[in-house]
Amino acid sequence: MNPAVPHPDGVSIRVRGLRKTLGGQEVLKGIDFDVRRGEIFVIMGPSGCGKTVLLKHLIGLLTPDAGEIWIEGEPIHSDGVLDRHRMAMVFQSGALLNSLTVGENVGLYLSEHRLKPPEEIARVVAEKLALVGLQDAADKMPGELSGGMKKRASIARALVSEPQLILYDEPTSELDPLMAVTVGEEILNLNRRMKVTSVVVTHDRDLAFGIGDRIALMSDGRILALGTPAEVRQTPHPLLREFLTASFQFQPAA
């Protein structure tokens, strides 16, 4: 297939030998993996192991020190790749623009690129906000939202560009269990309906095993295991076993 023609569905990603040093510390120590078109690829791992840094490489916010990333077979830093393939990222903190209302945030992509007339934008914004259960929040400022609401607004904002690749950084942290399930289902729905490729970074084991087509377990800048949920569950690596099975044990006072 001609790599210059964007794929209507999701995009594929290939990562080879990715290394990155930040602030004198090697954060990514040689990462290799492939994400297939239209799948949900989950990256799990302990806090601080480099998941967010990895995601930022996949959308071109950071440049690798060594190694290469291809989107649909094209090196990510060659001209126009990031323009041709629509990608969106849901940031860990939401990263809504504080000076705009929630509605303006969600519609920003459309209004700034002048893709639709204002009435049409308002309609799309309302639709996307309703999708994440925020239909009443359009006129609020981000400062008036809870952490979970910000995250959901951020998901709505990501959906507006009808992306071929969505990167989710901890989509369910700060959400109550019910909302976490709703968001998880929405990620799954979007993926199935629009064939969008999704990369989900999470600590949430339920989410990872519930929606992941494949799961990568990451620790200290390396991927230690990669496979289907069933395969990953069998991983022999002791650290990962601990990460996968650790649970809170309450010891009542005698």
């Binding site: 071109g60 940031f91 504080n98 690129h113 904002r157």
Partner: peptide, 16 residues
Amino acid sequence: SMTVYQEIDALKTMNI
């Protein structure tokens, strides 16, 4: 503050 709170990154991902 927009840089620190990743709002600038968010703009970039929207191609703005």
